[in-house]
Structure formats: structure tokens, C-alpha cells
């Protein structure tokens, strides 16, 4: 399955807001396929990490109860121009993804 990750840096008054959207099914594992009646295998994101210049600023532990295509974010203190933001995630199926932007 193709997952996409998008990252945005929004300038706000106290600092910067980092927001990330992950296109992911977030299948909890308890739902059944309507056609066949079989359980759909669980596949959800377990960890999302935000890094600023390789330094971990936020680490989120997600579970099966988060909706599909989740948007997660965090506030960080004022960033300076040229800072590199990286967000990376991994799910229980072993897939992972990341996105990065540079602060203008």
C-alpha cells in the first residue's frame, strides 16, 4: 500500500506549530470485511517522531483508536530559518514513512 506523509510548519505567536498528515488506513483489527466476513488484519501507526535538526522534539505513541488518515501535530519553541524538520512514523505492519521541510 502506498502511504503519503505531508508536513507543514505554521508560524504562530508563541512559537511554531508542526503538523503532519499521514494517509494511512489505521485498521484497528476488529472490523470485518463486509463481503467475506473475515477479520481485516490490524494495521495502525504506533509511533510518530518529530525531529528538529536531528534532535527529537516530540514523540507520539498512537494506537488503534486513532482515526484513519490521522493529522498529528505539536508546538515547538521559535525556530530559526534553515532549521530542518523531519517527521517519521512506523506502523505494526513494519511500514514506515517520513517527510521533511526546511524552515524559511
Amino acid at each position: 500500500m502506498i502511504y503519503s506523509t505531508r508536513l507543514k510548519v505554521i508560524e504562530t505567536e508563541p512559537g511554531h506549530q508542526l503538523m503532519c498528515e499521514i494517509r494511512h488506513p489505521m485498521e484497528p483489527g476488529g472490523r470485518r470485511d463486509k463481503a467475506t466476513g473475515r477479520l481485516l488484519p490490524a494495521n495502525y501507526i504506533t509511533q510518530v517522531v518529530f525531529r528538529v535538526n536531528e534532535e527529537i522534539r516530540a514523540e507520539m505513541l498512537l494506537g488503534k483508536y486513532v482515526s484513519k488518515n490521522p493529522v498529528v501535530g505539536t508546538m515547538v519553541s521559535k525556530l530559526s530559518g534553515g532549521d530542518r524538520i523531519i517527521v517519521s512514523w512506523q506502523d505494526i505492519a513494519g511500514d514506515s514513512g517520513q517527510a521533511s521541510v526546511r524552515v524559511k
Binding site: R6, K8, I10, M19, E21, N69, V71
Partner: peptide, 8 residues
Amino acid sequence: ELLLEFPP
């Protein structure tokens, strides 16, 4: 407005 940051 937050939702529209990544329009569905």
C-alpha cells in the same frame, strides 16, 4: 481551520 490545513 485546522482541518483545512490538509484539506480532506
